[in-house]
């Protein structure tokens, strides 16, 4: 007889779940920022004239999303007026071992660098925009990679405490960033290029279809990493298995399997590679929207689902 199945908890006192929706939103917006910045930099460093609009769109989206992101943190803090405690940068007052401190430094440096980069991109200064692009790439990757470390160093939560987390976050940032770029590029092509010649518009459309292929590749990488994460947590520890249970067939299976995997990954993957849909703006917009929703579901399931395994 399995005695374990006969256990009943009569009394326990669990505490409030600390990280909730604002934290998931924060991760989402920094991901959008980092993803669109990296695409913009690839376009700028690529150097071709037809890549230029992509560089410009990304350069403006990156600082914009990064203004929205930390607002979520301010809302989430219980002492928002003490937020300046984080920004003294003095060793006696700030703990340099904490991933949040890495984040505060990155969230100070990266928006400044991204804004200067955007200025040079818009003033057609190729030399300086390339210089700030090269400075910005490690910053953009770090600003999203550190959010992975925030979760990975949350030692008590089996779903978070994996070395895969920073990589997974960077890749999913690329996915959502590319999706946002596609939507913005399509908006530009359809509404803002009324005076352009047909040839120019066609060139621009070709570029957007190329981005669709990029999106597909990023989704495949993201799904591969998710598959690795799930396969490992299914077999590592008891808490990890319970987390896998929540994601795969438990409380969060709707968000994880339904929205993130099927709606947010498989359907867009089909759309961006199926010959009849991959060259259609309507289908590409649809695929990008689905992808963005899917990545938000991923942030939500990782943050909230990770804390839904009881600790005591």
């Amino acid at each position: 007889m399995d005695v374990g199945s006969q256990v009943t908890v009569l009394y326990n006192a669990p505490h409030l779940m600390p990280f909730q929706l604002p934290i998931a939103q924060y991760f989402y917006f920094t991901g959008l920022s980092a993803g669109s910045f990296v695409i913009s930099v690839i376009a700028v460093l690529g150097g071709k004239v037809e890549y230029k609009p992509l560089g410009r769109i990304g350069a403006i989206l990156a600082p914009l999303c990064l203004v929205l992101a930390p607002l979520n943190l301010l809302v989430d803090m219980t002492q928002p007026l003490r937020a300046w405690h984080l920004m003294t940068y003095l060793p006696g007052y700030v703990n340099f071992k904490s991933p949040i401190t890495y984040g505060v430094i990155l969230l100070t440096v990266y928006p400044i660098s991204a804004t200067i980069y955007a200025y040079f991109v818009y003033s057609n200064n190729h030399k300086m925009s390339k210089f700030f692009a090269i400075i910005g790439i490690p910053l953009a990757i770090a600003v999203h990679g550190y959010t992975g470390f925030i979760l990975a160093l949350g030692k008590g939560r089996a779903l978070w405490n994996t070395s895969l987390m920073p990589t997974l976050f960077i890749v999913s940032a690329m996915v959502s960033g590319i999706a946002l770029m596609i939507i913005m590029a399509i908006v530009r092509n359809v509404f803002l290029m009324k005076n352009a010649t047909a040839e120019e518009r066609q060139k621009d459309a070709k570029l957007i279809h190329g981005l669709g292929g990029f999106l597909g590749a990023a989704i495949i990488t993201d799904m591969f990493l998710l598959f690795n994460a799930v396969l490992v947590i299914l077999t590592s520890s008891k808490e990890a298995f319970e987390a896998a249970h929540l994601l795969l067939w438990g409380k969060f299976s709707m968000e994880f399997i339904g929205i993130e995997i099927v709606l947010g990954s498989l359907i867009p993957l089909f759309i961006v590679y199926y010959p009849k849909t991959k060259n259609s703006f309507k289908w590409l917009t649809f695929a990008s929207l689905l992808t963005m929703i899917g990545i938000f579901a991923m942030r939500f399931t990782v943050v909230v689902g990770g804390q839904s395994v009881p600790l005591h």
């Binding site: 409030l16 803090m77 949350g154 008590g156 600790l311 005591h312």
Partner: peptide
């Protein structure tokens, strides 16, 4: 304490 709740999220004992 600024109430970022990171300690709560990382404590393994709740």
């Amino acid at each position: 304490c600024i109430g970022c709740m990171y300690c709560m999220a990382s404590c393994p004992y709740d």
